[in-house]
Design a protein around this nucleic acid. Structure first.
Lengths: 342, 342
DNA sequence: CCACACCGTGTGAGCGCTAACATCGGACGA
DNA sequence: TCGTCCGATGTTAGCGCTCACACGGTGTGG
């Protein structure tokens, strides 16, 4: 910076002013400094800046150690939004799904001196592990239940843990209503693991939609997120469906489960959607080419990313950024139709 | 640090020595310092350290803006390996697939002051965009062809661009040989986009395996990576296959293409693997539950990540880390069998 | 016509750390 | 016994930047 100042014939402080868009720099002076910067190929040292300002311009993002569709998409969206806001994004993945791994990741970020942390924590216990860590910076938990009371956010003990999620409940409600509108009354839910926020919310949405139409929901079938579990569930269901005694529609907790169901039904010679309708969740790559193309619920990751960064940056500025509902979108394809008539 | 020094009754430099594992600190002194650190909850300021040492302990990783299986898995693997080596990992995603976006990302990292960059660049032009950027730090391009001459790595003009890739050619060779061993002679390749390294290498491996057995490879069918293209290819093939005139086996460029093929064959009433065998590439989540479970080639991401970090850290230390072949592994499931007898 | 405000710029200090050198005491060999 | 070396620690000087303040010049109001 001293070199630039010398070339431009100004003081180092004026160079700093130009770099920081300080208003009181004469236009001509600014040009001269800019020219000197270009000539020298000067680049401001971010470590020195961080040291002087006590701000690192870095956000930490904790995500899972598996290349899952949701977390990956969320990370990408957050990175884009953060870069637009002038932040660097540092990532840490969870090796295991436990509190220790979570603490390791958060400690890692504290050592690095990130300004705020976004945790992509799809599971209850992972989110709980965050709660037990009193970070001195704002922490946002994404994909958690939005269960903060309205007046939260200003506890005297320091930065609050914020939370944000896609409204999975609304998504499940919409999907279930789609099935009800087609004439289904017996809609089974093949649910994801009960320690996942999304699974719980989707189940709740399904339950709400059914109840609102006067249908008593049957007990959901509990699974992991894997296609394998979906397949097992499908095999168990296939006989009943074939006999016209099973559900006429299945709302799967995600597209993997739906994929497994599809395969099981196909093996048993059942037609989707003629014998049974199937709805998935996520709209993963390829779901349009499942057999048959899957009706599913698409997740609004871009909005989630922008919102996450806005909340965290807002918290940094001492503002309370209001939570806003982010609703997913139903994508109707060929795996849903009216129930069979017997 | 001064506070810690005061509590421990030593100078700040001794605290620094303890933190940096300097050998000449008396055991008892070390204990006292450590105790003071614990009492005060002291954490070293990484910005100040970076400023003083001119080392940021940060690696930049450029990856795609789509939640693709390969890049996401690679990123996760690199992050894990980097953290083990004491590095922070900063990420930047590509908004578009062009040189400008690549340059934006690299500039971003230069501004941040990363020590080295790993580019997950599956496409030829993306990798080319890296080449046109003379970074002052080591840059490793992952998933590129290993086309560096043996004596590269010490060009006088500064840090070299390194490269590393999974040996897709070997993977394709293995998969094709599996098909040949089953008795197939007419093995079609439904290839990925020709501007992708992996697509090119897989095609080359397929070609090599066939030629080595005296089979003249037919012209591969060129596609994007999407299930949609696989489906289209499958529809075009289905008639010929049904008439016993088409290929008896198809090596798909990835699992998505394989998924599309599977669907097209299923629609036409063809049995996989009885009428035609299909092999995919990647072993994506769920491929074990395609209809039928897909024989595919699993990618060794962990090894790739460790190797990437080792190469880049080695380059930082001025060492030339030799390139080592990382071979993928064939996973045989139910989509491959002997060809039909007519 | 002077006091004051304000704009554009320069000066000095300090952010928290590490590198290099200085210092001190004890162990060792001659 | 003394000189020397080395291990353990302290002292000083930056790393490159921003912040707070100082300073001269111009415009404005009383």
């Amino acid at each position: 910076m001293a070199d630039v100042a010398a070339v431009a014939g100004v003081s180092h402080q004026t160079v700093s002013r130009v770099l920081n868009d300080h208003p009181s720099v004469r236009g001509e002076t600014r040009e001269r400094v800019l020219a000197a910067i270009a000539t020298l190929g000067y680049r401001r040292n971010s470590a020195a800046r961080a040291l002087a300002t006590a701000r690192s311009a870095t956000l930490g993002v904790v995500t899972t150690g598996s290349p899952l569709f949701g977390p990956s998409s969320t990370l990408i969206a957050i990175e884009g939004a953060a870069r637009d806001q002038g932040y660097y994004v540092s990532v840490a993945t969870l090796r295991r799904y436990d509190a220790d791994a979570m603490h390791d990741a958060l400690e890692h970020f504290m050592d690095q001196g990130v300004e705020a942390i976004v945790v992509i924590a799809p599971q209850l216990d992972v989110a709980a592990a965050v709660e037990s860590f009193r970070a001195p910076v704002p922490v946002l938990v994404v994909a958690a239940l939005e269960d903060l009371p309205a007046d939260a956010g200003t506890t005297p003990s320091g930065p609050t843990t914020l939370s944000l999620a896609v409204d999975q409940r609304a998504g499940a409600r919409t999907a279930t209503e789609h099935l009800l509108d087609l004439g289904h009354r017996d809609v089974l839910h093949v649910a994801g693991p009960s320690d996942w926020f999304d699974a719980l919310e989707r189940e709740a949405g399904w339950r709400e939609a059914l109840t609102a139409r006067g249908v008593v929901p049957a007990r959901p079938r509990r699974c992991s997120w894997s296609a394998g579990d979906g397949y097992a569930a499908g095999r168990d269901l296939a006989e009943a469906v074939a006999a016209g005694e099973g559900p006429t529609a299945v709302l799967a907790g995600n597209d993997q489960l739906a994929l497994g169901l599809l395969r099981a039904f196909w093996e048993r010679g059942l037609s989707v959607p003629d014998d049974v309708s199937v709805v998935g969740f996520d709209d993963v790559a390829g779901s349009a080419y499942f057999v048959p193309p899957l009706t599913t619920v698409r997740q609004p990751f871009d909005a989630l990313g922008r919102r996450s960064v806005a909340m965290v940056v807002g918290a940094l500025a001492g503002q309370r950024v209001p939570t806003e509902r982010i609703a997913p979108e139903l994508v109707v394809r060929s795996s849903t139709a009216a129930p069979p008539v017997h």
